[in-house]
Amino acid sequence: MHKYKKAIREIGIPAVTLLLLGCFWELSVKIFTIPEYLLPAPSKIWNDTTVLGWNLIHHIASTLRTIGLGFTLALCVSLPLAITIAYSRIMSVAIYPLLVLTQSVPKVALAPILIVMLGANDLPKIIVTFLISFFPLVISITTGLVSVPPEYIELARSVRASRVRELLSIRLPYAIPFIFSGIKVAITLAVVGAVVGEFVAAENGLGYLITSSMAYFKTPVAFGAILILALTSISLFQTVVLIEHFLFPWARPVERQR
């Protein structure tokens, strides 16, 4: 009973708000006769976008692929990098400033240069996605690995654990909640990265769909693409939340009555 009430409150109320907002939008466009290329009505967005059919699916798949590859690359690079930083003082002194430097370079500005360097293929947009999403991952994983309470480290030492075992059995599990908060930031940034990459260098993908349709003042399609991107971002985020919830139940915060 209590559970149902909670579900209604947490899903129902936002849904109703969204629905009301949609109606308000539709009506305002109709009543004030706002031109379509400025602000299309929700119904118009729906019609013009769905009419693309398989083409649309193709764009979505392409963007998802970029996000997936760029993000996976970021994860694969940041994990060993974070471990190196966490275990070696010298490496942390050497790498940290570099990391911050790469972070302060605007990735959007890098995209055109990357095309020249890597050619007009899928690589530049994957690299942009990677560059945008890997920084929060390195930072959060490193933070998790080094903030293990000293009691746990002492416990590992008292049972003669090797450094590898200490990493696998103490530091990494301890870092799981930190890693996941990094992943949550990184996955949403990966969506941004993929779109930026597609703006600059792509023949497909939702980013490309936005630029190409705006070139012909097909605003409804651009709006449709943006909404799909938002949905993608939310779904990816929620997927991460669910994975954390079910795979690592011990990392859940202790439930409190509200």
């Binding site: 009691e151 746990y152 002492e154 416990l155 059995s169 103490i170 599990p173 301890y174 799981i176 690592f248 011990w250 990392a251």
Partner: peptide, 9 residues
């Protein structure tokens, strides 16, 4: 140890 220091995971 003074605290149980069990691994929560």
């Amino acid at each position: 140890f003074q605290a149980p220091t069990l691994l929560p995971w």
